[in-house]
Simulated assay, not measured.
Amino acid sequence: MKYIEISLTKCKILLTEKELLGLLSKDVELYKESLKRGKAFYRKMNQQRREAEQFTTYEVTRINKYLH
């Protein structure tokens, strides 16, 4: 069985996906907020990755022009 580990200040708790969804379904606003937060987090991570790739491509192109 797969568990989701949640680190709290003085302990860690382990929940199954079913248990976590059951808790979130009791507080719909918390569920909506956590979904928004998760989407924002992954959008930011993807944007940073794209920027890093773009910068690397730019630097390689610039270096190649300098060498030739």
Rank of each mutant, 00 (worst) to 15 (best):
N46G: 11
L8C: 08
E59I: 01
C11A: 09
S34P: 15
K12N: 13
Q54A: 12
I13Q: 12
L8E: 10
L24N: 09
S34Q: 03
K10L: 05
R50G: 05
H68K: 13
R62P: 12
Y58K: 14
K26Y: 01
K36C: 04
K39H: 06
F41T: 14
L23C: 05
Q48N: 15
V28P: 13
R62E: 10
S25C: 04
A40G: 10
R43C: 05
N64G: 03
T16N: 08
K39E: 14
R43S: 12
K44T: 14
R49A: 15
Y3Q: 08
Y3G: 10
A40N: 11
H68F: 07
L14R: 10
L15I: 05
E19P: 08
E59F: 00
A52F: 01
Y3F: 03
R37A: 10
S7P: 09
T56K: 12
I63D: 14
L23N: 14
E29S: 04
L67S: 03
L21M: 11
K44V: 04
I63W: 02
L20S: 06
K36L: 02
F41C: 15
E5G: 08
Q54V: 03
I13E: 12
N46T: 08
G22N: 11
K2N: 12
E53W: 03
Y58N: 14
I6F: 02
D27L: 04
E17V: 10
S7D: 11
E53Q: 12
E5Q: 05
K2D: 12
F41L: 15
E19Y: 01
